[in-house]
């Protein structure tokens, strides 16, 4: 057997080398084409020189955006009005299905719960940490450790937390940290966490909160540090202290940043399907819109319904992203 084993590894390794060489070849080829085009187009003179420059610089990007985003988005809207095999025109029937069928009710309810609970908890926690962290001695270490989950994929984070939620029969030693902890605290027969509806929804949200809190902390910490000292001084002269100072002065001063953080986490929450897919596959009453859109489109191949769900997702994030963009432009205008 060891002989076969090593042979197997050798072929795997040569596969790996081939793949990587091909990839570097593709990158090198891409850069070489760019250089050649640059060289050739750079030699052009006279009238065509300017339009050619614009075409070379802007053409690829515009073409990619057109083929990859604009046309597909328009087509998704069109597909959402057709049947699941795209042969019959149904009008708004897919949307009626999305808002009235019993199976989707739970999905919409869960999604609503997610976009309310996860962003609010994330922002509140991020704000608390931002306020408290900068007076500790090793501020940078704390910040790094809390920010670290941002680097981890949602799939990786889900596996980390699945292991924490792992449940054994209460007669056996537990290997999941959550069961072990609550049993140590005196809860003799904890449930199987992932199967317990509606608790499991909140347990999945914990993963989103774990990942996103570092982001909220860093952004809010910067906003708090940017409040001019005179304003705090003036408030103190007027007698503001502690909680009063916090709610009457600090929070209003960073109000815009707070809303931007809140909406940004909401957008992420609406779009992310990785957590639910990895943790439960949408079973046990945990399905959300983004994962339902994926399964309708790419598991059950219900193109019409999947497209309708994509459009609903788009309409749901539209006001949030719109707000962020307006806010961003305002900030730039002030500078």
């Amino acid at each position: 057997m060891p002989g076969i084993h090593t042979m197997f590894e050798a072929s795997t390794l040569s596969d790996a080398v081939t793949k990587l060489l091909n990839t570097f070849g593709a990158v090198a080829g891409f850069l070489a084409i760019l250089l050649i085009v640059f060289y050739a187009a750079g030699r052009a003179t006279g009238k065509i020189s300017r339009p050619l420059t614009i075409l070379v610089f802007l053409g690829p990007a515009v073409l990619l955006i057109l083929i990859g985003l604009i046309i597909p988005a328009a087509r998704t809207i069109w597909l959402s009005t057709k049947s699941d095999d795209s042969t019959r025109f149904l009008g708004a029937k897919n949307y009626t299905w999305a808002f009235t069928s019993d199976s989707i009710h739970q999905v919409l309810l869960n999604t609503l719960l997610w976009i309310i609970v996860a962003p609010i908890v994330t922002t509140a926690l991020g704000l608390c940490i931002a306020l408290l962290v900068d007076r500790l001695k090793n501020e940078a270490v704390y910040k790094s450790l809390i920010f670290m989950p941002m680097a981890i994929s949602f799939v990786g984070a889900s596996i980390i937390w699945r292991f924490i939620y792992e449940t054994r029969d209460s007669s056996q030693p537990q290997i999941g940290l959550l069961s072990q902890t609550v049993m140590a605290l005196g809860w003799k027969h904890p449930p199987n966490w992932i199967l317990s509806h509606p608790l499991n929804n909140f347990l999945l949200m914990v993963i989103m909160i774990w990942v996103q809190t570092g982001f909220a902390m860093v952004v809010l910490s910067a906003a708090i540090k940017a409040i001019p000292a005179e304003i705090i001084e003036a408030a103190k002269v007027d007698g503001a202290r502690g909680g009063n100072l916090f709610f009457r002065v600090t929070v209003p001063m960073i109000r815009n940043t707070l809303i931007v953080v809140l909406t940004t986490v909401m957008i992420t929450t609406l779009k992310v399907f990785d957590i639910v897919r990895t943790m439960t596959g949408g079973n046990f009453g945990t399905q959300i819109l983004a994962n339902e859109m994926y399964s309708q489109s790419f598991v059950q191949f219900n193109i019409g319904r999947g497209s309708a769900l994509a459009v609903i997702l788009f309409v749901a994030v539209l006001p949030l992203v719109g707000y962020n963009i307006v806010q961003l432009r305002k900030e730039r205008g002030n500078r």
Partner: peptide
């Protein structure tokens, strides 16, 4: 291009 940031990539997947 700036405004296109609002389009979630879910909108483009199927087509």
């Amino acid at each position: 291009i700036f405004a296109l940031q609002i389009v979630p990539l879910q909108m483009a997947l199927i087509p």
